[in-house]
Design a protein around this nucleic acid. Sequence first.
DNA 1: ATGGTTGCTTAGCAA
Length: 261
Amino acid sequence: MLKIATWNVNSVKARKERLLSWLQREMPDVLSLQELKVEADGFPLAEVQDAGYQAVLNAQKTYNGVALLAKRELLDGQSGFGDAVEDTQARHVEATVCGLRVLSVYAPNGGDGAGDKWTYKLAWLDRLLAYLERTHDPRAPLLLCGDLNIAPDDKDVARPDAWKHTVLCRPEVRDAFARLLAWGLSDVMRAHHPEGGPYTWWDYRMLGFQKGNGLRIDHILATLPLAAACTSAGVDRNERKGTQPSDHAPVYALFDWPKSA
DNA sequence: ATGGTTGCTTAGCAA
C-alpha cells in the first residue's frame, strides 16, 4: 500500500511546524509540495530528513517553488519542461519513487483573468500537456500531483455561481483539465467521490473556510495502471483549522502498489 | 462592485 499526498503549504517557512508534525502523524510514502516560497537553503531539509524523508526541490525565492518528499529513494529528479519558453517560475519537479514517476506541479493562478497572468496560465497548462505527450507514456505508472488552480466541475465548488467567471472555473481551464484526462490521466478523487468535492482550498479573504466557501483545485491524477490500484482518496480538512493554517488542505490517495517496485 | 486575509518584503504584489 502506498500513501500519496499533495499539499500547497503557502510558504514552507510559515508552515514548517505544521508540515513536520503532519509528516510524522500521517507518514505518507510520497508528499508533493507547492508554494515553498524559499530558496533551497531556506528549506528545512535537516528536519525533513530527521522525519525519515528524502527531498527533491525546485525552489525559488518569494513565490512558487515545488518539492517531492519520499521515504524511499527519489531517482532521476528533474525540473522544468525543457521547452523553448523562457520561464523563470519554479512550478514543476518530478522524480521516480517506488517505480512510479511522480510530478509535483503548481499551476499559475491566472490573476483577474484579463492580463498576462491569464495568458501565462493557459500557455503553461498547454506546455504541461505537451511535456507529458513528449516525455511520458500514459501506459506507464505516473502521478500528476499538485495545485492545478482548476476546479474541474461546478460540483467541485461550494458556490458555483460566485466563482463561475473566475480563473479557477472558466471553460478554458476546465478544457485544459479535460485534455489532461484525455491524454490518459484519471482523477482518483472524483472516482471515489462522484458527488463532487471534497474541497481543498478556501480563500483567506472573505473567511472562506469559516463560511464553507471551498473549491477542489488540488489534485492527484493517475495513469490507468495506477488509477486501477487506487483504493481511497480524501482531504485532510482538519489541517485547514487552528492557528496559522495554509489556505490549502492536504489531499491524499491510497494505492494498492508495492513500495519495492 | 467591493471587500475581506495571509505571506513575503518592507509598500506593494500575489493569491
